[in-house]
């Protein structure tokens, strides 16, 4: 009955100072299956939940290698994620062609954010409906960034995006103090634990989650499913759902302006 008058195109402001189309794009990120990232001083781990759209189909790829030193995990429109991954790969190849050195992660992330920003300011464009967790290693150490459809980007010690990511965030928030000095194995373990949090009781197996890592002396790669299964079994993460009650911690989002996330 009362249709929102201010959401018909991206360039229209609402009187409250909001861009609804951009916020809708960010909603798309929340609907995608979860992606999680966490980093120590030397390594970054990405983990995703794989959801098949139907019993008959396989799941879509949610983690992409960008270069030896950078990889991304996506949540939201996978198709947009693929396009952006290809852009990131191109930027890396071009940089190493000209300078014979890897592109610093922070720069790649800014270029990506600038690309997303353009779509929030052109009437004939549509914002990308995908959030990207960018994991990378450069001269300044390991980095984890989150790139948002709004063109905002943030650096994190650990973060989760996508559906039911709040549970994973809560888990990570409880533990991130120690992440800086974690070993790669500990990072992988906590990554998988965080994935488990988003499942809300569903059984965790290697077919439902993909884990990738990049770090010092270790180019970005997806950890093979058997290893993931071993970790799941050795820590008994699979079955029981421990105190998965906790119903969304303090929910800080309520206060923050939507564009900030």
């Amino acid at each position: 009955m009362f249709r929102n008058q201010y959401d018909t195109d991206v360039t229209t402001w609402s009187p409250a100072g909001r861009l609804f189309q951009v916020e809708y794009a960010m909603e798309a990120v929340k609907q995608g299956s979860a992606a999680i990232g966490l980093r120590s001083a030397t390594h970054v781990v990405l983990a995703t939940v794989n959801k098949a759209t139907s019993e008959l189909s396989s799941h879509q790829k949610k983690i992409f290698k960008v270069d030896d030193h950078i990889g991304v995990a996506i949540a939201g429109l996978t198709a947009d994620g693929r396009v952006l991954s290809r852009y990131l790969r191109n930027e890396c190849i071009n940089h190493s062609f000209v300078y014979e050195s890897p592109l610093p992660v922070a720069r790649l992330v800014v270029q990506l954010a600038d690309k997303a920003q353009v779509c929030t300011q052109r009437s004939w464009k549509r914002p990308y409906g995908v959030g990207l967790l960018v994991a990378g290693l450069d001269e300044n150490g390991a980095h984890l960034y989150y790139n948002c459809p709004s063109g905002n980007y943030f650096e994190y010690q650990a973060f989760a995006i996508g559906s039911r990511s709040q549970a994973a965030k809560t888990y990570l928030e409880r533990r991130f103090d120690n992440f800086e000095k974690y070993s790669r194995e500990e990072l992988i373990k906590d990554g998988i634990f965080a994935v488990k949090e988003t499942l809300q009781g569903e059984k965790l197996t290697n077919s439902i989650c993909t884990v990738a890592i990049v770090g010092v002396g270790e180019p970005f790669h997806i950890i093979d499913p058997q290893t993931v299964q071993q970790v799941i079994e050795s820590f008994d993460i699979g079955e029981e759902a421990p105190a998965a009650v906790e119903e969304g911690g303090p929910a800080p989002e309520a206060e923050a302006a939507p564009m900030d996330i």
């Binding site: 300078y99 014979e100 050195s101 610093p104 922070a106 720069r107 001269e139 300044n140």
Partner: peptide
């Protein structure tokens, strides 16, 4: 952002 071009990059 703390990154800078070194001699190798300039040479290339």
């Amino acid at each position: 952002d703390g990154n800078s071009l070194g001699p190798k990059e300039v040479h290339s």
